[in-house]
Amino acid sequence: MTDPLLRVVDLKTYYRTSAGLVRAVDGVSFEVYKDETFCVVGESGCGKSTLALSIIRLVPYPGEIVGGKIIYRGTDLLKLPESEMRKIRGKEIAMIFQNPMNSLNPVFTIGFQIAEPPVIHFNMDGRSAWRRAVELIGKVRMPDPEVRARNYPHVLSGGMRQRSMIAMMISCEPKLLLADEPTTSVDVTVQAQLLNLLMNIKRERRMSMVLITHNFGLVAEVCNRVAVMYAGKIVELGPVREVFRNPVHPYTRGLMKCLPIGTKRKEQLYVIPGQPPNLIEPPPGCRFHPRCPHAMEKCKKEEPPLTEVEPNHYVACYLRR
């Protein structure tokens, strides 16, 4: 494969809370290549959102990136001063969040908000930026772009708001999109349309995408490679078909087995026993061992490294070695 667009190396993001140090992202490494859709999937509290925020250095207080590298096209983003980082955000790497109502400014029209990034990043004059915004609104397939551009966020439906977010996100032609649960707040029919739109735009403009989600359905629908996160670590990483056809880590297998598909109605579902661990004091060794049906003595003491089990398919488990 060619050089990766983004390389995350041993990233650690901790939150210093009064209860203790929360190791939300604890030694995560992966690469994102050009044109690729890379998914990070995991349950709530596994650190997937913190991971996305770390990439564009927007981790909220009391969180802090304490170690690792984020190499974007050859430069380590963690070494850049904030003023340089601002030139990357929006222009090179753009992010879309779960709830568009929290990311759109209620007192400006969406046209204004979509026109703003090119004005800031490219010194575009207001008039052409507005024209471009209207064009982008059409591009994300909202009807009557001229009218919509003058709308405030509150008059739009959830789906339309998320479409405006997509328009805003692509306004500076970024090379990497970060999408954190972009469709969780909308209905299934709208979700399907948004995903289709996002994937089309991504393909047309040859962008790469990191999609953060808890939904295995979405992972299967859109991504090329997937990383499964558990308690701040990647436990399995590989091409999506391979991971679905042949999941190796007991956690990945458990998650897939407990979905209500492939079963008769009301037939007992597989259950992963226990609860996800507390990230202040995660279990020693493999973090999944207290819930793992195959845990061995070794799993309780040593942490399994991410190892290649098939070409490009990595698993952090002692079982298959």
Partner: peptide, 27 residues
């Protein structure tokens, strides 16, 4: 049928592209 065709299915062998044509508009 629209609802069924829009539901994301946890199986990468059958992606939206192959079955996704009924969904249009918003409620």
């Amino acid at each position: 049928a629209t609802l069924l065709s829009a539901a994301p299915i946890p199986n990468p062998e059958v992606r939206y592209v192959k079955r996704f044509s009924l969904v249009r508009g918003e409620p």
